[in-house]
């Protein structure tokens, strides 16, 4: 019985040490491991122009403009801060790319502050529900259990 407890204590101590080390490494990585920068991040830290980065946020309502050539698209990305980033992209966007929806864009900042994207990805949230229209508001009604 004694040896068993010894082994258990030793293992638990080792496990605690490993977990602590990993958590420490993870929290140190927190900024590097972020998959994209939000407009708030960019305003706060600044991102050098000409370097390939990813930005992400919500496509602002009414901001999507399609150019006459049919493939160039302009829109504005925002987040919970008042900062926004104007984005230009030439190409086909995913089906889920729409206003008030999440987006991640890969590309570079131009000197003027506009972000020129080489790739556009749509980011959706964790809600899953059928397409039900609310008769009163015409809005999609949330029927989640939260």
């Amino acid at each position: 019985m004694k040896r068993k407890n010894q082994r258990l204590a030793l293992l638990l101590a080792a496990a605690a040490a490993v977990v602590a080390a990993v958590l420490l490494a993870m929290s140190a990585l927190k900024d590097q491991a972020a998959y994209f920068y939000t407009p708030g991040d960019v305003a706060r830290q600044g991102v050098p122009t000409g370097r390939a980065v990813r930005i992400g946020g919500m496509v602002q309502t009414g901001s999507i403009r399609r150019a006459a050539d049919g493939v160039t698209i302009d829109f504005v990305v925002g987040d919970e801060t008042p900062h926004t980033i104007p984005v230009r992209y030439r190409g086909i966007v995913p089906d889920l790319f729409k206003e008030k929806s999440g987006v991640v864009a890969e590309g570079r900042f131009e000197a003027g502050g506009r972000f020129v994207a080489t790739e556009i990805l749509a980011k959706h949230d964790e809600n899953y529900r059928p397409p039900v229209l609310d008769a009163n508001t015409g809005e999609h009604k949330s029927r989640s259990l939260k």
């Binding site: 972020a34 998959y35 980011k123 959706h124 964790e126 899953y128 029927r143 259990l145």
Partner: peptide, 18 residues
């Protein structure tokens, strides 16, 4: 970390799945 993958839909307090 900010990720492309969405957050969790099923937690201890409820779910965001219909």
């Amino acid at each position: 970390w900010r990720s492309l993958h969405q957050g969790q839909s099923i937690g201890l307090t409820g779910t965001t799945i219909d």
